[in-house]
Write a protein that binds this DNA or RNA. Structure first.
Length: 424
RNA sequence: GGAGAAAUGGCAGAGUGGUCGAAUGCACUGGUCUUGAAAACCAGCGAGGGUCACACCUCCGGGGGUUCGAAUCCCUCUUUCUCCGCCA
């Protein structure tokens, strides 16, 4: 959520940013934010004055009672009763303004970084880096869902039976490969200075608001009605919310966490061939990296996260590219996002396997995540996160690109984790 | 699941209806002293809103209520602790 003071002080820049995102009615929305904010503050000021008067009188009444001037006190009591009614009205007005203001602010996405290219769809994303050679596979190369069946390592039908579509069962070497990838990713992240954490897999409503899943993306999360909790769509949510309502010191930075969790997404409205196999699931595994940074360092941190993910993909030997997302494809809460895509040779398409973003103060504002700066004032921190990495599509790319006539050859770096070299 | 107790500033911990945003100690920051450090002493030290700056307003787990006035009384929710039950 953007802060009203930021909007007030940088109106022009905000409008330009929203234009880059093709945000409709930007001017109208921003104007009504500013107007509502002004009315909110007017109500606040009026309320404060009434309360000040009432506090003063109450103190006087106290003194009168002590000195026995009961009659005089009773006259003042009348007066404060009136003030009380007035304050009730004003505080209702103020709350109403606050609600209206928040509803407006919840609709406004983050302002894109200047590097974000203009554009309306994924076609306008900018390819900033490519690496690795696309392997030439033999003629009867298979997509991963066929490979999963052939080697009996991924069972979509079994998952279908016990739960439903989008919940595969990993078996044998497939299950072990999953575990190997998780352990490998966590080790790489830990080596790079991230502290491993294990968060809960369900979150409460406040956490959903903190990172921006609520109120707008409610339908994307699984909701547990009886306890009013949500299954996490990504480790970003619980881990970033560790720092909700927190006042940090400058030397607490940087805060670097990594977490493996399953992720649960309803993916309402997704269908068709691009969701086939592991391409899009309701439950999948992901290792996430989350950072809390000083605003001055957040873009250096973003770059270092990108370099880190690159390092892992280089080691795995998968062909990949990095995209800078355009305004139209950028996530609601992000200011700048780099997507990593692995090339799936058997499907002849790119698969997104990581998304690394700087949210600047957008999440921190809702989270009330601040730090005390050098001048002693509290200031919003910057939050960042990225996948490092998401399993199913890495697995898909790996199965498809590493298939040979003898079977699927496991990349060398994973062999200490799997304990086997080939799936056949 | 049942019974009881509790929740106060970074931490510990006073405060049971009025001048309490809150004693005291520790921690922290600045200063004096010291070759330096420690100790001692002096001063400062919660957050949010508001203001050029003051004033002023809000916050003692969350929400609601009683009262002219609530950290303090009442209701409710959450969490923690103790006991009982159940279970890994």
């Amino acid at each position: 959520m953007l802060s009203t003071t930021h909007i007030r002080d940088n109106k022009k820049q905000v409008l330009e940013g929203l234009a880059k995102r093709n945000f409709k009615d930007a001017e109208k929305t921003i104007d009504s934010v500013l107007d509502t904010d002004e009315r909110k503050r007017a109500a606040q000021t009026a309320l404060d004055q009434v309360l000040a008067e009432s506090n003063k009188l109450s103190k006087e009444i106290g003194i009168m009672f002590k000195s026995g001037e009961v009659q005089k006190a009773n006259i003042l009591k009348e007066k404060t009763s009136q003030l009380k009614e007035k304050s009730k009205e004003l505080s209702e007005l103020k709350m109403q303004m606050e609600t209206e203001l928040n509803e407006l602010l919840y609709q406004i996405p983050n302002i894109p970084h200047p590097l974000v290219p203009a554009g309306s769809s994924e076609e306008d994303n900018e390819v900033v880096f490519e690496h690795g050679e696309i392997p030439t596979l033999n003629e009867n190369a298979l997509p991963h869902w066929e490979l999963g069946k052939k080697y009996d390592i991924i069972d979509f039908d079994l998952g279908n039976k016990i739960t439903g579509a989008g919940f595969p069962v990993y078996k044998g070497k497939g299950a072990k490969l999953q575990r190997a990838l998780i352990a490998y990713f966590l080790d790489k992240n830990t080596e790079a200075g991230y502290t491993e954490v294990q968060p809960p897999l369900v979150i409460n409503e406040a956490s959903g608001y903190g990172t921006g899943q609520l109120p707008d993306k409610e339908g994307q999360m699984y909701h547990i009605g009886a306890d009013d909790l949500y299954l996490i769509p990504t480790a970003e949510v619980p881990v970033t919310n560790f720092y909700r309502d927190t006042l940090l010191k400058e030397d607490d930075f940087p805060i670097c966490n990594t977490a493996y969790t399953p992720c649960f997404r309803r993916e309402a409205g997704s269908y068709g061939s691009h969701v086939r196999g592991l391409n899009r699931l309701h439950q999948f595994d992901k290792v996430e990296i989350v950072r809390i940074e000083h605003p001055e360092n957040s873009y250096a941190a973003l770059d270092s996260m990108v370099e880190h993910v690159k390092g892992i993909l280089n080691e795995l030997g998968l062909p990949y590219r990095i995209l800078r997302l355009c305004g139209g494809d950028l996530g609601f809460t992000s200011a700048l996002t780099y997507d990593f895509e692995v090339y799936s040779t058997a499907q002849s398409r790119w698969l997104e396997i990581s998304s690394v973003s700087n949210f600047e103060t957008f999440q921190a504002n809702r989270l009330k995540l601040r730090f005390k700066n050098k001048t002693g004032k509290s200031q919003l921190a910057h939050t960042l996160n990225g996948s490092s990495l998401a399993l199913p599509r890495v697995l898909a790319g790996l199965l498809e690109n590493c298939q040979t006539e003898k079977g699927i050859v496991i990349p060398e770096v994973l062999r200490p984790y799997t304990g086997f070299e080939v799936i056949n």
